[in-house]
Nucleic acid binder design. Sequence first.
DNA 1: GGTTGCATGTAAAACGTTACATGATTTT
DNA 2: AAAATCATGTAACGTTTTACATGCAACC
Lengths: 181, 181
Amino acid sequence: MELSSTAHVILGMLSWRPMSGYEIKALVDRSTRFFWAASYGQIYPELRKLSAAGLIEGKAEPRGGRRRNVYRLTPAGRRELEAWLSVDAETFELRDEGLLKLFFAEAGGSEAAIKALDAKRRDHERLLSRLEEMEATGRPDGFAYQVLRYGIECNRWQAEWCERTMRELEKELDAESRRSA
Amino acid sequence: MELSSTAHVILGMLSWRPMSGYEIKALVDRSTRFFWAASYGQIYPELRKLSAAGLIEGKAEPRGGRRRNVYRLTPAGRRELEAWLSVDAETFELRDEGLLKLFFAEAGGSEAAIKALDAKRRDHERLLSRLEEMEATGRPDGFAYQVLRYGIECNRWQAEWCERTMRELEKELDAESRRSA
DNA sequence: GGTTGCATGTAAAACGTTACATGATTTT
DNA sequence: AAAATCATGTAACGTTTTACATGCAACC
């Protein structure tokens, strides 16, 4: 049986501790979201499939009158997670609309390029702030911390690249306008 | 009418010069692919939609006995492209399975973390080589060149981050094994 | 009594890839 | 003569998001 990529996020989260679908979603949003997102529309159906496949086990654990299903990894699930870890990753996908706008900015003049760079810089800075806050409020254990550091450093790098490139373009623009003056 | 994100890639490419769907796909693969991919399954249907919407115009221009449709931007299409450039980007999505493996590497021991970092480093270096080759063989005009530089520098940064983090982990592992020896 | 948070789920739509089908031309 | 490249297209499939529906509990 072929497992979807999101299935491994669930197996991974459950390798830390038993959790409900709601908790998995909340944890994803606070940790992997910036490089691997998952929605309820994926998580709940996937929990059923993994349960049917015997890789996880669910148990009703209501909190008060609120129903709640907590899942935990089975031995087979742990083996599947380890098998996944032992093979090289396949998926690396990036969709960066800001870069696309810069790419085609000729059609909007130099201001379009500056604007695209500025917006992209702000986006990376916004994410950077959130990640730095996460580090300050409760730094994750183990390798998850390296990943958080990656997020922080990589977004800082990207924000700086935007700033640097923007300054270069502005300098060129300036030189151009002086020449024509 | 709401335009898909891929529609703007087409409008942008046609703002450079008239092209066939095949040429657009080839150009995408040689330029935006590392941050914005597009398949035939998107391009050909999209060309029809954009044509129906009056944003582009197609003309049959066979080469020998080979049929071929060349599209060009209409004034309305150029306006649409400019309008798109004038608003801030929305989409920034990353799916990095290598980072996900590092994130959950606890379940596979430190070797799993090293392995994930090593594979990710190789991936970035492979892409880096391709981008550097692109720069050497025919550097693109205008802002597309800044984007290529971004690809080169960002992938180099990422490869270096992997190497650096791998060395740190190896050092820690070493210290650990010496303590237990 | 209203808002926010906990909690589960589904249906429809949108998005995107892959594989396939077809056929001409150029290169080896 | 075969293989690669040019060229267009679609159907099936899988993935992902969005919006919606439901309801309890805690807090203000």
